[in-house]
Design a protein around this nucleic acid. Structure first.
Lengths: 210, 210
DNA sequence: AATTATCTCACGTAAAAGGGTGAATTTGTG
DNA sequence: CACAAATTCACCCTTTTACGTGAGATAATT
């Protein structure tokens, strides 16, 4: 098992990254480069006939993205180990990939040692998260937990306010009284610690609540 | 002149991209790979002793970014041709790099043909903008031209409003009367075609005006 | 079952914003 | 210089928000 090389495939729309991986793997006898693709479609075509042990996968692919490709591949080939390879420094992407069957997440600025370690780790069936990715997830969780929990109604009112509607118009739309809408806005102010509509909409925008 | 190969240097914090370029250039006899760096600092160190004809440069580098590095290099080595190599699909970056002395802009998803063409083009002293980059600039210019031109004072008032200040507070801060601030806000409403503060701050956020 | 959270509504006052109109002064530009 | 744009200010009136306080009804959670 440890004698035969790990067969590695790569799908990335950046030719340069493909070539880079290829070059790196060629200098390591324990790996065998079995193919590459620029798009998810071509990757799927490859796997109908051939196989690999580990696939390095970019997230941002044209048309079908990495997340979709990931879920398809894990379903069809449960033994295939997927290692996400991306520049995306947003925790949501990391989370999505791992939820869809990826065994690891690597940033493209990784050095050779880290890449080798990542591939061998996921090949063994263990998860691999680069230190930066772990950090990112932790920080984002912190931020997320600092966002006050708004109720369904409050979120509803918030987006309507942001759309420019007055309390009167909102009350008609939601079939409640103006005073009720007023109450929700007061609660929004309290929860988000603002004192007027301008501040409210600004921070709501920053928190992607609208 | 066409006999001696074009000496190419690359600075990019992604090792994989470096390796990819290296691999591509090795298969082309008209190019000579003379070195690479992961950071701007190491790049500058290299150029104190050695030289190159064309430098491929990523924009997002740790610490010192590509724009700074670009302006330094063009000043010290006017004959050096800089080719920006980036995944950044924001027109501002393209514009900044070209303003700071870059001769070309290439996306990292470029294929071999395009990369070769880009290098040879900038080596000849001509500008090279990949089709996508040109498109992007054109589209952004269109969008930009659709944003109403706000006066200096209006922008000032806008950010103060977004910060949560009332007309009274703004008037004190700017040493003008409340009526004046009121006027500016009315003009903002007219120009941005909104009818209240909520809408104003929302679209201002979307247009990156605050 | 008991407690808590959410949603609802009411009333009153004060503060702020919205809307219209007009106009003087300064600044910028052809 | 002349014309346009920007900045400034005033006054009126209406609408909308903001803020406090209290409270009943329903849904969710322990």
């Amino acid at each position: 098992m440890s004698n035969s090389p790990i067969r590695v495939y790569i799908v990335d729309d950046h030719l340069l990254v493909q070539e880079g991986i290829k070059a790196l793997l060629q200098s390591e006898p324990s790996f065998e480069f079995v193919g590459s693709a620029l798009t998810a479609e071509k990757c799927l075509t490859f796997f109908t006939e051939q196989k690999a042990d580990v696939i390095l996968m970019d997230i941002s692919l044209p048309k079908m993205d990495g997340v979709q490709l990931c879920s398809i591949l894990t379903e069809k080939f449960p033994s295939l180990k997927i290692l996400a390879l991306s520049t995306h420094n947003q925790g949501t992407y990391i989370r999505k990939m791992m939820e869809n069957g990826a065994m690891g997440y690597l940033f493209k600025n990784a050095n050779k040692t880290e890449i080798v370690k990542a591939i061998t780790t996921v090949f063994r069936g263990e998860k691999f998260l680069t230190y930066d990715a772990e950090n990112l997830l932790r920080q984002e969780n912190l931020l997320q937990s600092q966002i006050p929990k708004l109720t369904k109604r409050e979120k509803e009112v918030l987006v309507l306010v942001a759309s420019g509607m007055t309390n009167g118009q909102i009350s008609e739309k939601l079939f409640v009284s103006i005073d009720t809408v007023d109450s929700h806005r007061k609660n929004l102010h309290t929860k988000l610690n603002v004192k007027n509509t301008a501040q409210l909409i600004k921070i709501a925008g920053e928190l992607n609540l609208i």
